[in-house]
Amino acid sequence: MTDTNREVLLSIDDLHVWFELRRFGFGHAGYVKAVDGVTFNLHYGETIAIVGESGCGKTSLMKTILGLNTPTRGKIMFEDKNVGELTGEALRDYRSKIGYVQQDPFGALAPFMNVQRILEEPLVINGIKDPAERERRVRKVMEEVKLTPADDFLHKFPHMLSGGQQQRIVIARAIILEPKLVVADEPVSMLDASVRVEILKLLRGLQEKYRLAVIYITHDLSTVRYFSERVFVMYAGNVVEKAPVTSLVHTPRHPYTVALMDATSDPDADNALRYRELPGGEPPSLVNPPSGCRFHPRCPKRIENLCEVEEPQEFQVDEHLVACWLYK
């Protein structure tokens, strides 16, 4: 369980991120409610995973934390500063305290810059003018991500590196400014199975060494347990379940979490012999989400006259916080 004595690094309170839809470029045509009321605290050195399918709002949530989207409503506090009010120098300073590891390592690296330039860019932008100092830090961070000897890599361009090496460069860039928080958006989903574990272990090693707080965003429940302390499950813009990771994989509470787990395969030949029990339908549109609980049209345990009417609040079940009427 989370050590409650730890200080809060990031506090998100009733965050809404809506994108306005426009008809013919001007007339208002509704909102995409990508993030619709998310609240949580992240402590120094804590790792959390946000799990959900594409379009559940996890990417919008992450980009808002990175300061790339502006919140429609709600507050993000980082080290007791309201992120929404930061501008100019202060905003840059805030961004430099968060590392960002992206999904597609090749796309995340400018194809026309060599490794040295890629790693120096954050330093240049954040005012480190001495080239010797920059090179020292570049070499140090390359050692951290085990790209040694650094001289073999410094002058290479991204396309000359393997997927795993590219992702190491992305991680190196994310930590070169010595951030307090790293946001990793599906950092291994585009890598091969044998490399995936290597990158996850590297990230975990760095996290432990520097007591980094990490937000790990993924659609793959099976990698979550090797990486994070707490898991948030998102569905259609809401967090439906928050739980410590081991507890979540052993006793998932929310019907959507259960469905996600049921759909995840482990390598087992018996899988081929049976059909999987899955909820029908597809995730709802974020423009016009269902009333009440957003999962109710697909939910096998739906309570009539309740789930489709009233939005569920969070209920405490053991160590879980579950937004589901079943646990009232």
């Binding site: 790339l68 430099s96 400018a110 992305v170």
Partner: peptide, 16 residues
């Protein structure tokens, strides 16, 4: 491109 997004995230100015 993701690398442009990354640049915004580590604080690159618009002109840069």
């Amino acid at each position: 491109a993701p690398y442009v997004e990354a640049a915004r995230a580590y604080g690159a100015s618009n002109w840069r």
